[in-house]
Computed example of a mutant assay.
Amino acid sequence: MPAHLTVWYNTRCPVCDAGIDWQRNKLLALVRAGTIQFRDINEQPDALAHFGATLDDVRRCLHATDAAGQLIVGADVAVALWGLTPGEGWLAELFGNRVALPFTRFFYNRFADLLFAWNRRSGRW
């Protein structure tokens, strides 16, 4: 059975790596059951190329594939993770609802841009 969600992230970014490690620990039962997987894009840089996603795209923001094989990007991945995380469903409802989601995406993308630039300046490639 394919994973419900496979999350691709950049382990070379200390903020991303710590955030995913923290989230993975909260989702340990789902990870052990194979319902969710976390993958380092640096180990398989072309893993999402068939979607048109480059290595830098995934280094800039979270990418994931769902059980249907659809690509999910950025804030939508965070919302999906919150929805699966015990005790964090309220975050998915608050930031992922029809009214809030455009703002959530905007602020997520601005933060991702800053984090990506910081990692590039710091030579984390």
Rank of each mutant, 00 (worst) to 15 (best):
P86M: 01
T65L: 01
D66K: 09
V77A: 02
L84C: 07
D66P: 08
A53W: 03
Q70D: 15
R60S: 08
G83R: 07
T65Q: 11
D66G: 10
L71R: 12
D76C: 05
L71K: 01
L62W: 07
A78S: 14
R60W: 09
L81P: 01
D56G: 02
D76H: 05
D56L: 12
D56C: 01
A64I: 11
P86Y: 01
V77D: 05
V58I: 15
G83M: 08
Q70G: 09
A75D: 04
A68G: 13
R60T: 13
V77E: 07
T54L: 11
D76Y: 06
P86T: 02
T85V: 02
G69S: 11
C61D: 12
A68E: 15
D57W: 04
T54E: 06
D56E: 15
D56K: 08
A80S: 15
L55S: 12
A80F: 01
V79N: 00
W82N: 11
L84I: 02
T85M: 13
A75I: 08
A53G: 02
A78K: 00
G69W: 01
V77C: 03
L62S: 04
R59W: 00
L71M: 13
A80V: 07
G69Q: 05
A80H: 03
D66I: 11
L84H: 12
A78I: 10
A68K: 14
G69N: 08
L55A: 11
L81D: 06
L71T: 00
T65H: 02
D57R: 08
Q70F: 04
T65S: 00
D76V: 08
R59Y: 00
P86G: 05
W82E: 07
V58Y: 07
V58A: 12
A80M: 10
L62F: 14
L84E: 15
G74A: 12
A64P: 05
T85S: 14
T65A: 02
L81M: 14
A75N: 05
T85K: 09
G74D: 14
C61R: 14
D57N: 14
G74P: 07
A80G: 10
A75F: 02
P86H: 03
A64V: 13
A80Y: 00
A68I: 00
W82G: 03
R59C: 13
G69P: 02
A78E: 05
A78W: 09
D57K: 08
V58P: 02
R59E: 07
A75Y: 03
L81F: 03
T65F: 00
L81S: 10
T54W: 08
G83T: 12
D57E: 04
A64T: 13
H63P: 09
L84Q: 14
R60M: 13
R59G: 11
L84N: 13
A53I: 13
A53Q: 15
P86N: 06
A68V: 01
H63G: 03
R59V: 04
H63W: 01
L62M: 14
L84K: 12
Q70A: 15
L71H: 12
G69A: 10
A67K: 13
I72N: 00
D76S: 10
V73M: 12
L55I: 12
L55D: 10
C61L: 11
I72E: 00
G83V: 07
Q70Y: 02
L71G: 03
L81H: 09
D76P: 04
G74V: 01
P86Q: 05
V58G: 04
